[in-house]
Design a protein around this nucleic acid. Structure first.
Lengths: 255, 255
DNA sequence: CGCAGTCTTGAGACAGATCAACTCACGTGG
DNA sequence: CCACGTGAGTTGATCTGTCTCAAGACTGCG
């Protein structure tokens, strides 16, 4: 903090200011908010240390992460070999620029786990909001992010409700393409930071089923895969069609 | 609005002020917010008219409602006998005092449908927030409601991910008991405003499966039913145990 | 190069969906 | 007030998609 020493957290704080500035002005104010946050690097595979007492807002400046939860029932077993035994539920994937709400460890405990090396700023929700009071645009910014998260969560719920494994995977790929946004209309390449297991746990499927669906989509010519994490979406409209298409029911033709 | 004419919307506006007052002071300000809202009665079974252009915040003053979505794929078929054909997804149930976020009709269209006769105040989100800017406590109140909704949505997602039909129904009953709150620790009576179909659509189960699970819970002595909508929870701890219990997997004993 | 962990593929089992009667609750009108 | 009919709910038989279990193949790291 003193004189000319190198400060690795600067780029992250800059990213935060930039994201904030997009929706509200006042750079001096942004500095005050930034000072509330704690900069943190989070290497691939590691979890953000939990907090039993306070909700936290986490700004993901760089990298990719998953928000997971494990239900209390599993906790009984998890003492020793937690990693292998517990079946987690992935609640959401997050990427650079996201503002994430990590609730305090209550009934279920939520954790943010890095899928790739991350840089983030963690704020205690209460204090952040207290400070933001004076600049309502910031509150709206947080609210907007929350609405977004709610919307995604609900869309996901719709999937889990009525959709088949095939549809879920197709929909997952389409929505990842939208969020990572490195493709326009033509064949686009996705570098998925999450494992098959993560995908399965986010969609309520087993790893085997995920794998089978990838294979079948490949055989149908809708996607191509290369290595573990590279997926090419060869036919985006086709995937959209598969994703939305009603299963095998004869719901379809009734005039 | 003029002199002494009876104004049926008064009690609802009163309820709104009360809810607002719980988290922030300033009654004069509450009046200004109230004036933005449109009072509306919504009879059982009817849907709140959709809005293609604006998100809306809806304060449910009295009654019970479900927030549903139907995926765009179904819309193709729904022209004529929409009610019977489309399989909807119930995203959430809401009760008196809830502040609900109804997103504009975009890809999927969301609708708020009354389960019982409702009284509500509908606000255009943008204008509501614009006005609320000056009173940040209100923004926080909305944010808090949103966080609550997000949390519930995610908890629900966890269910849909890994839980069996039995667990989902038990969990549903427990959470309804919590929200309707008309029981302490002993046997409590729930008057469910929603049909078996609604329950099924919210949990991702068919109506038949819901029915079977109710029967089995009854035979297990955990609940008692009377008529269509009255359910007695005879053994709340038992239901909690069933709801959280890991299925048949041998995830359990590994020291 | 070899090892560990991820991913793929196959065979069998089971929970829940689907289809098809049937029964019952509840509001209506005689 | 009770018979009646309609839609909600229940129950049973069967079918199917996904999970489970069990090998095997491939990636990517040390």
């Amino acid at each position: 903090m003193a004189s000319g020493s190198y400060s690795p957290d600067q780029p992250s704080k800059e990213a935060f200011r930039a994201a904030l500035a997009a929706s509200c002005s006042g750079t001096a104010f942004a500095d005050r908010l930034v000072s509330l946050g704690r900069y943190q690097r989070l290497n691939k595979g590691l979890a953000l240390a939990g907090d039993a007492d306070h909700d936290r807002l986490v700004f993901l400046a760089a990298g990719a992460a998953k928000l997971v939860a494990r239900s209390p029932a599993m906790l009984l077993t998890g003492q020793s070999r937690a990693g292998l035994v517990t079946n987690m539920q992935v609640l959401a994937f997050h990427f650079a620029g996201d503002m994430i709400c990590v609730l305090r460890e209550g009934n279920a405990d939520f954790r943010l786990i890095a899928l790739a090396d991350c840089e983030l700023l963690a704020f205690p929700t209460e204090r952040f909001l207290d400070t933001a009071q004076t600049e309502p645009a910031v509150l709206r910014w947080v609210l907007a992010h929350n609405l977004q998260a709610l919307h995604r969560s609900r869309t996901r719920m719709m999937q889990m409700g009525h959709k088949s494994a095939r549809q879920r995977i197709a929909d997952f790929l389409v929505s990842m393409a939208e969020r990572l946004g490195d493709c326009s209309t033509e064949a686009c390449r996705l570098l998925l930071p999450m494992s098959r297991r993560d995908i399965g746990e986010s969609l309520g499927l087993t790893i085997e089923t995920v794998s089978r669906q990838f294979t079948e989509l490949r055989e149908a010519g809708l996607i191509a895969t290369e290595g573990r994490s590279l997926v090419q979406l060869l036919d985006l409209p086709g995937l959209v069609r598969v994703a939305g298409h009603v299963p095998a029911t004869r719901t379809v033709q009734l005039i």
